[in-house]
């Protein structure tokens, strides 16, 4: 099993790692780059807990191979806040109690950030369909949708 040297940019920093042929980007992030924010909830792309951005698109990092990250730009939850300044979405999730156990939160935040970049004023329905690939078992989604709405309003202001 020969590994491949991969160079990519993660949260603005250039990184290098050796990816095994079958190794997922999620495992690379977690166990080679020590970025534990993306979670494995299913490993089959159904739950969205491992959501990251890859060249500006949101992906389930459990469905991407580490070797596919060669030359790519990757964004994870660890890159969302600016130092100690939380992103408005992160603050809104705390203020609106949009998390209970919090395991789905990193994936949902990464996905929601991308939504607001593309659509600064989404309707409730647009938020719900955008986040339909990110499962949350605790909240029933109500407070998540409200937090995204609140962050969007704040970012528009």
């Amino acid at each position: 099993m020969t590994g491949t040297l991969v160079t990519s940019k993660v949260n603005g920093d250039e990184v290098q790692f050796i990816a095994d042929p079958g190794e997922t980007l999620l495992d690379v992030l977690r166990y080679k780059l020590n970025l534990m924010g993306a979670k494995e909830g299913c490993g089959t792309g159904d739950c969205g807990a491992c959501t990251v951005t890859l060249n500006g698109r949101i992906v389930c990092s459990c469905l991407v191979l580490g070797v596919e990250a060669e030359g790519a730009t990757i964004g994870t939850i660890e890159g969302m806040a600016d130092g100690n300044r939380l992103h408005p979405l992160q603050q809104a999730f705390i203020d609106h109690a949009a998390l209970q156990c919090g395991i789905c939160t990193p994936g949902i935040l990464v996905a929601a950030q991308k939504l607001l970049e593309r659509n600064p004023d989404p309707t409730e329905e647009e938020i719900r369909y955008w986040l339909a690939g990110n499962l949350c078992r605790c909240t029933g989604y109500d407070k998540i949708v409200r937090a995204v709405q609140a962050a969007a309003a704040q970012m528009r202001a």
Binding site: T44, C47, A132, G133, L135, C136
Partner: peptide, 13 residues
Amino acid sequence: GFLDYRIPVASDM
């Protein structure tokens, strides 16, 4: 798996 054992998603609710 979550594909075939379908828990409610945001757009269902």
